[in-house]
Each structure stands twice: as structure tokens, then as C-alpha cells.
Design a protein around this nucleic acid. Structure first.
Lengths: 163, 163
DNA sequence: CAAAATTAAATTGCACGCAAATTAATTTTG
DNA sequence: CAAAATTAATTTGCGTGCAATTTAATTTTG
């Protein structure tokens, strides 16, 4: 025990830094686990998980702008532009400039994209089984994560002026 | 309501597909929120979040092989090799072939890398504040996520033979 | 109303994350 | 013990994510 770091800092024990103790790592790992679980289900349709998220958003509200989709998913145009181009190439969505405001691009489901919605319910059920959680447990965990995300995001906004 | 998809499939209502209802999306969003929260804290050291995870692992157990780090973090060598090369270039770790088994590469903290551990306690405290959760709440959420991750991973392994 | 500021997408550059192929070393086995 | 199989890293290729820049269109202002 030659390294007795941070003893006077916060009285945090060494184990506080252990990976298994970190909430952020638990979230990080769960994200990857979900990605791996979705992959074989989405591969059949040539979709990636983020592309699937875009379709989820469009199934709820078709004809959104790139900007709006970005707000829904928390992604910027730097991520969405090439992703949407691939979704278009795959034949699931179409893109066209809004005649009323040529800056905006409206993304709409194609017939194929709409058809896929039926399959999504099966994917949803499959993933639901894989999580092995009851509906109530899923709901609680989901809400707790939403609250956590919100608090982290709030900090970001405040932090622009604070120390 | 022209699209009445999946009515007979699982009796799942349309809202079941809403982004806000998805546990996977809640996890996905939380991961990004953590990334954004860590970014300004890690930028000062020229570190990315995954690089920071590697350091967390090495602070617990120095001198691990690439393979072993991959097991701890759930990453493969395709991700770790270039990441470790950057950590080495930044002066936080050194890499050398294991003389006893030349296939393996042992990753060790440099003096600089060890020194950074002290800062990590401050980062940890800062993030802890940003989450705005009590220790108990963090612990419960973390454990629930670990259980979820485990169940998803189990499915992956089984799924190799099952339908 | 024209110049300046703002906004929406797209583009560029960099770092994951993963699959697949490659290389080199070790272990298994015939 | 030599050939075959296995293992550990690296490399390559592709799709995110995000910061920063660019381009084009719209809104604000002087």
C-alpha cells in the first residue's frame, strides 16, 4: 500500500473507484448489452440500433425534420445526416426539403418503412423476454434512468457559468 | 388510424413502441448523458471516457493483459488496441510483451498514470454531485442494471442454439 | 430593404465499438 | 516431434457520436 491517494480529499476509500461500484459503468455496460441483444434481431432488416431508434420515432410521428428527430433522440445533425442517408438508401425513409422553409429536411417513412412497424412489435416482445423483467420493474428502472439523465443534463446547462 | 399493425400479434398498443416507453432508450440516453457530464472533467487530462475506464481498471489491478482488460470492460481487442496505443502516446500507460507468453501484451501504469488516480477521486465526487442521487439510490440503480446486463448477456449465450 | 445574425443540414476529423481477416505464438494431437 | 488447432493482438472496414466548420436559407435589425 504505497499509494494512499486522496486520503485527505474526500475520505473516499480505494474501492470507490472500482468499476463494479460505478453507476456510469453499469449504464455503459447495459447499453452495450442491449446493443448486442438487438443486433441479431435488427440484422435481418439491415438496420443498426440507432437507425431503429429513428424508425421508432417516425412510427410515432411521421414527417419530422432532421432537427426534430435530433431533439427526440438527443443526436445532432452530424450524426443524423449520414445515418438518414443510409436509411434512405435502405429504402425505409425518404427525405425532401420543406418547401415552406428550404433549410429544413423532412424525413418520411416509405411504404417499406411503415410495413416494418409490424415487425417492431415482435422485436419488442423478444427484447422484453430477454430482459427478464416484469412490466413494473421495467417501468421503475426506466423512470429512474430518465430522472438521472435529466439531472445530468441540467448540470450541463448550469455548469456553463458555475465553477 | 389507418395502421392497425400487430393487433393480433401480442395485443400490444401502439404506445408500446414510443421512445419514452423503451427501457433500452432510457439506458442509451443515460449513457450519453454520462458521457457529456464526464467530457469537460476528462478533457483537462486529454482523456476520453473509455480511456478513463481503462485507467479505473488499472488502478484496481495494474499490469493486466489486453485480453483481461477486455474482460473487465466488455471490450474486444479491436477496440482496445488503438485505444491503448493512444493512452500510451498520452503517457499514462506502457505496453510490453509478456516474456513468458509473447502473444500477450501487458499494460502497466506509468508514474503519470498512477498520479492521475488522485484526480479521479475528485472526478468521482463531481459526478456524484451531478447525478443528484443518494448513495443508496445509486447502489440500487447500479445493481438493477447489473442484473439486467447479466440477463441480456445470458440470452446471447443461450441464443446460439435456441430459436 | 439591405447587412448582420441566426438557423438547419451537411461535411470533416477523430475516437469508439464491433465483425472479420491477419499475424505471431502457444498448445493440442496424431 | 511435426502438423493442426487454438489463442492474443493487431489491422481493416463500417457505423455511430460529437466538435467544429461550411453552406444555404431565413429572420432580425439598423
Amino acid at each position: 500500500m504505497t499509494t494512499k491517494a486522496a486520503k485527505s480529499e474526500d475520505a473516499l476509500p480505494d474501492e470507490a473507484l472500482a468499476l463494479g461500484q460505478q453507476l456510469c459503468f453499469a449504464v455503459y455496460s447495459a447499453t452495450h448489452a442491449f446493443n448486442r441483444a438487438y443486433k441479431p434481431l435488427l440484422d435481418r432488416f439491415g438496420l443498426t440500433y440507432p437507425q431503429y431508434l429513428v424508425l421508432l420515432a417516425l412510427w410515432q410521428q411521421d414527417g419530422m425534420t432532421v432537427k426534430r428527430i435530433g431533439v427526440e433522440l438527443g443526436l445532432d445533425s452530424g450524426t443524423l445526416s449520414p445515418l438518414l442517408k443510409r436509411l434512405e438508401a435502405a429504402g425505409y425513409v425518404g427525405r425532401m426539403r420543406d418547401p415552406a422553409d428550404e433549410r429544413q429536411v423532412i424525413v418520411s417513412l416509405t411504404e417499406n418503412g411503415r410495413r416494418l412497424k409490424t415487425e417492431a412489435f415482435k422485436i419488442l416482445a423478444e427484447i422484453g423476454r430477454a430482459t427478464g423483467c416484469g412490466l413494473e420493474e421495467v417501468g421503475e428502472l426506466r423512470d429512474a434512468l430518465h430522472r438521472l439523465t435529466q439531472r445530468l443534463a441540467d448540470r450541463q446547462v448550469e455548469g456553463l457559468e458555475a465553477d
